[in-house]
Amino acid sequence: MGRFLLKRLFQTIIILIIISILAFSLIHIIPGDPVYAMLGTDITKEYHDQVYHSMGLDLPLVQQYFRWISNFVQGKMGYSYHFKEDVLTLVQRRLPPTLILGITSAIFSVVLGLLFGIITAVRRGKPIDSILTVLANIGIATPIFWLAVLLVFIFSINLKWLPSWGFTLPWVDFAKSMKQLIMPVICMSVGGIASYTRQTRSSMLEVIGQDYIRTARSKGLKESKVIMGHAVKNALIPILTLIGLTLRNSIGGSAIIERVFNISGMGSVMVEALGSRDYIALQSGIVFLALITCICNLLVDIAYAYADPRIRLD
């Protein structure tokens, strides 16, 4: 187990290095003078040169990269010219909403998706199977912002049940926070619920058809025990690998949901940084999001290794 862990940790670091190189290249791929692109052309030549120098753009590329990365590791991510603050403080403020949204909807997707998946597998061919399957498929097929706009129109504007925008940290005002979370979480987890339902269903069907389940049944075990005790346990393992992917998707996809519900999170930071050519926020933001995804993947892999001993020996 220790060796496996070490190997995965090493791999994660390599991945992060590759990402940092990709993010760093951005600033040099986009044509034009980055300082003018970032600050507009109204600035004086002196100010331009000062910023150019402070960003280290006059250094050789390799040196620039190492300068940036060593500063990044020390938490000195630089000053964002669009957001007018240090990137680290910016991330500290903007990350929690995105994480809370992402994690809540990931949990939502997994729980509901598994539930629906098991129901559809066990009640295969019954009406409930058809309804849930069709719903799951429609869930995957709907443009997420279109759904969000419809929900707001129905539940905020016409029924006035839920607030149409905003985000409150749960430890600041729990009731308000929950009310504001409902619609964004539904929108963000629809796709996840759908894919978990499909995956769980096929995974369960596969397991149910296998010999040891038949053996268990023939031994006269209760059907519910067979399903919960044997089938689900074995069907869950392949599902685990999906969780990392779900988190990545919900954190990345939050850009759209944050825009519809006017939530200030990391997604809107990335979109705004791109729009205003704020390279400093952009570089660090990408690496930050990737870092979170990598950590999640690492945790999932460890959990996976625990659940399925074969992996450890691989």
Partner: peptide, 26 residues
């Protein structure tokens, strides 16, 4: 295998929408 898969995983770690937005911007 190691090299290719690390690059692929790096691509996977960047949220797809952010990646697509960045490429479109460029």
């Amino acid at each position: 295998d190691s090299v290719i898969m690390r690059i692929v995983e790096a691509m996977m770690a960047i949220p797809p929408i952010v990646l697509a937005l960045a490429l479109v911007t460029i």
